[in-house]
Amino acid sequence: MLNLLKQGMSPQKLAATVAVGSVVGVIPMLGATTVLGTAIAARFRLNIAATVLVSYLMQPFQILLALPFIKLGISWFGLDELQLTFDEMTAMFRSDWLNALNKLWQANLAGISAWAILALPSGLVLYFIFLPVFKRFLPQTVVAEAKG
């Protein structure tokens, strides 16, 4: 993190980088964080390496939040409640594996949609939480270099 601060990032850019990396890091779709984080960071001229690093650090939260996002999406979009215990999923695949894949795909898509709806407001909240922290603790020489 100190190396990132020494690269001349302003508190605003650093707060945006951490917010984007945090939000992208919890998308309930394994493997999407690198591509999505890189694309967003490149679009908004944020530090790509730092954004991807933060998103990787969020992976434990990604795993923890996957089911809540899926359940939220299922309830928001009125899908049939999906039984997510191992035994029930095994029974679902044994009886009709194609239907089971379809239900899991729909549930995951609902979870991604719930994440997408919450991503922008969550990112803004995180940005405004991190901004005063970085303004306070960022070395003044880095702030001066970033302005110049």
Score class of each variant (00 low, 15 high):
119 A>D: 11
28 P>I: 00
93 F>M: 13
109 L>P: 04
90 T>V: 11
96 D>L: 00
56 Y>P: 00
110 A>E: 04
98 L>C: 01
24 V>G: 02
43 R>G: 09
67 L>M: 14
125 V>T: 12
131 L>V: 04
48 I>R: 13
39 A>V: 09
11 P>S: 04
96 D>I: 01
65 L>P: 08
58 M>A: 14
98 L>G: 11
16 A>D: 02
87 D>Q: 13
133 V>F: 11
76 W>Q: 13
20 V>N: 05
24 V>A: 02
98 L>I: 07
117 I>D: 09
126 L>I: 03
120 L>P: 05
89 M>I: 07
63 I>M: 10
130 F>G: 00
29 M>Q: 08
12 Q>V: 08
130 F>H: 05
36 L>H: 07
67 L>Y: 08
55 S>H: 02
77 F>Y: 15
79 L>R: 09
71 K>Y: 08
58 M>E: 05
78 G>I: 11
13 K>A: 13
15 A>I: 02
88 E>S: 12
26 V>N: 10
57 L>T: 12
94 R>G: 01
90 T>Q: 15
19 A>N: 10
84 L>E: 10
33 T>D: 03
42 A>M: 14
49 A>R: 08
111 G>M: 06
21 G>A: 04
120 L>Q: 07
68 P>T: 08
61 F>I: 12
28 P>M: 02
13 K>Y: 02
109 L>G: 13
103 K>Q: 13
17 T>G: 14
15 A>N: 06
19 A>Q: 06
69 F>M: 10
84 L>K: 04
20 V>W: 03
132 P>Y: 00
82 L>V: 15
70 I>A: 12
75 S>T: 15
118 L>V: 04
123 G>C: 03
70 I>Y: 04
119 A>R: 09
98 L>D: 05
44 F>W: 13
67 L>F: 10
87 D>F: 03
54 V>N: 06
35 V>E: 11
47 N>Q: 13
49 A>K: 09
61 F>G: 07
98 L>M: 11
41 A>K: 09
45 R>K: 15
108 N>F: 01
129 I>L: 08
88 E>L: 03
32 A>V: 04
103 K>I: 00
78 G>V: 08
46 L>P: 13
77 F>K: 12
44 F>A: 10
90 T>E: 14
45 R>W: 04
114 A>K: 05
20 V>C: 01
16 A>N: 03
33 T>E: 06
71 K>I: 07
131 L>I: 02
60 P>I: 10
39 A>M: 14
113 S>T: 13
64 L>I: 11
125 V>C: 07
7 Q>C: 05
93 F>D: 10
14 L>K: 07
120 L>I: 15
97 W>N: 12
85 T>S: 15
7 Q>W: 01
19 A>D: 11
11 P>Y: 00
118 L>Y: 06
33 T>A: 10
116 A>T: 14
57 L>R: 06
89 M>N: 11
105 W>L: 15
126 L>K: 03
